[in-house]
Design a protein around this nucleic acid. Structure first.
Length: 424
DNA sequence: TCCTCCCGCCAATCA
DNA sequence: TGATTGGCGGGAGGA
């Protein structure tokens, strides 16, 4: 199989170039860049470091490290922008890492979360198949069904004794009792049904060390985190609270901290997918996350997901999607290969809040529009169709128009499926 | 100062 | 046995 099924097209960047890097220039795009030219990378032979030459601009070395440009959420946005095209099927992890300018380790984080919400599927070592956002409703539906099986009473205040308990294992590293082997199998069923190439059908139900490792996987934690939203009455939840519910009370501070770290990773990815949004808890200053899919009570089995192309509120802290590559200086050590490719930074901060899904316009007006659109979404799923046809931002950058088109296409496809499901 | 979360070490697992 | 996968926590950036 080919390394990736992304076809070369006139708008597609060269395989060895940072993808969509031009989009990262959003704040000050050329009036009409004609025709689209992918950024070129040149190697500074004397210095040994790579020097990015973007869009014909001057080479620039050593701009300041900024963790905003390296966030998992932004990486996820870029990953989706790169692969959410109708003609993409296979994804090679090496290829993705190379194209996005990050280490493989980060790609694993992304694909584990994306896989757990049905956006892609692991086919083999190093190889994933892109499903797209159309796969999300089914994955969420299955998650919800499983969660409801595990939680007899919807709205149970805690998952501690059910699925969450199955992952509250951090202090049991040396205990591999098989008392709940079946529950483990059940709990792992989704991820393993996705990735069953290596599963042995006759595997003993007892908890193996490999199972134990899987229990703590980012993918499984993602699913359990999503289940919290799918099964509980709460509108928002803080990561501390989520960690408590997933771990159970009374766990060591260390375990809790580790779990919260992972939840931050997951939340950032889910935020960039517009499945959740960062918000503020009403009764405290602590940040919390709100589910945007709202597949909860009184909605029967339906699972709705309100992501692109509708615009969501901006995260309070981060601006995802401002940079379609993550080429940048690394913190601490300098990465000789990626260093200085990061000349894709945006201008001043007030400019770069606009992600790839943001239409041109003022931030305030957009936020106002976003809120209206969000409310509109929540009123009725039927409105989405109109929204898709009417909400068509005009990007100055042709690459963005293409990108938005892909989202509209993916969304339309998913919405058609949803209507068909509802009708049947 | 505390929250957030990037980064990469290294152990587990796979081929 | 080398390659792949990913848990984990240190510690730096940011508010």
């Amino acid at each position: 199989m080919a390394a990736t099924a992304i076809p070369s097209s006139s708008a597609a960047p060269a395989a060895d170039a940072p993808v969509h890097a031009e989009v990262a220039q959003l704040p000050a795009p050329p009036p009409r860049p004609a025709p689209y030219q992918p950024p070129r990378l040149a190697v500074d032979g004397a210095g040994g470091g790579a020097v990015a030459v973007v869009g014909g601009g001057k080479p620039c070395r050593h701009h300041a490290y900024s963790r905003k440009q390296k966030s998992l959420g932004l990486l996820c946005t870029n990953f989706v922008a790169l692969y959410d095209r109708g003609d993409v099927e296979a994804i090679g992890l090496d290829d993705a890492a190379k194209r996005l300018g990050v280490e493989r380790r980060r790609i694993y984080d992304i694909v584990n979360v994306l896989e757990s919400v049905g956006i892609l599927v692991r086919r083999a070592k190093n190889r994933y198949t892109w499903i797209g956002f159309g796969g999300v409703p089914a994955a969420l539906r299955e998650l919800k069904e499983r969660a409801l099986r595990e939680v007899p009473v919807v709205g149970s205040p805690s998952l501690d004794e059910t699925s969450a308990a199955n992952v509250s294992d951090d202090e049991d590293d040396d205990k591999f009792d098989d008392a709940d082997g079946d529950a483990e199998s059940e709990k792992l069923s989704l991820s393993q049904s996705i990735d069953n190439s290596s599963d042995k059908p006759d595997a003993a139900p007892c908890k193996l060390r490999s199972d134990h490792r899987k229990e703590k996987s980012l993918g499984l934690l993602t699913q359990n985190f999503v289940k919290l939203f799918l099964t509980m009455e709460i509108e928002t939840i803080s990561l501390d609270e989520a960690a408590k519910r997933l771990l159970g009370e009374g766990h060591a501070e260390n375990n809790m901290r580790t779990k919260v770290r992972r939840l931050y990773d997951i939340a950032n990815v889910l935020s960039s997918l517009k499945l959740i949004e960062k918000t503020q808890q009403a009764d405290s200053r602590k940040p919390a996350f709100r589910w945007l899919g709202q597949p909860k009570k009184n909605e029967g089995d339906s699972v709705t997901v309100a992501f692109a192309p509708t615009k969501m509120t901006l995260p309070s802290k981060r601006a995802f999607g401002t940079d379609l590559t993550n080429f940048d200086n690394k913190r601490g050590k300098l990465d000789s290969t990626m260093e200085n490719r990061g000349n894709l930074t945006l201008g001043n901060r007030s400019d770069f809040v606009y992600g790839p899904f943001h239409p041109a316009g003022t931030r305030a007006r957009k936020e106002h529009d976003n809120r209206k659109i969000l409310e509109k979404d929540r009123k009725s799923i039927q409105d989405w169709e109109n929204l898709a046809s009417s909400f068509r931002p005009q990007y100055q950058n042709p690459a963005l128009n293409d990108l938005f088109g892909h989202y509209v296409e993916a969304w339309s496809s998913w919405y058609s499926d949803l209507k068909r499901d509802a009708a049947s």
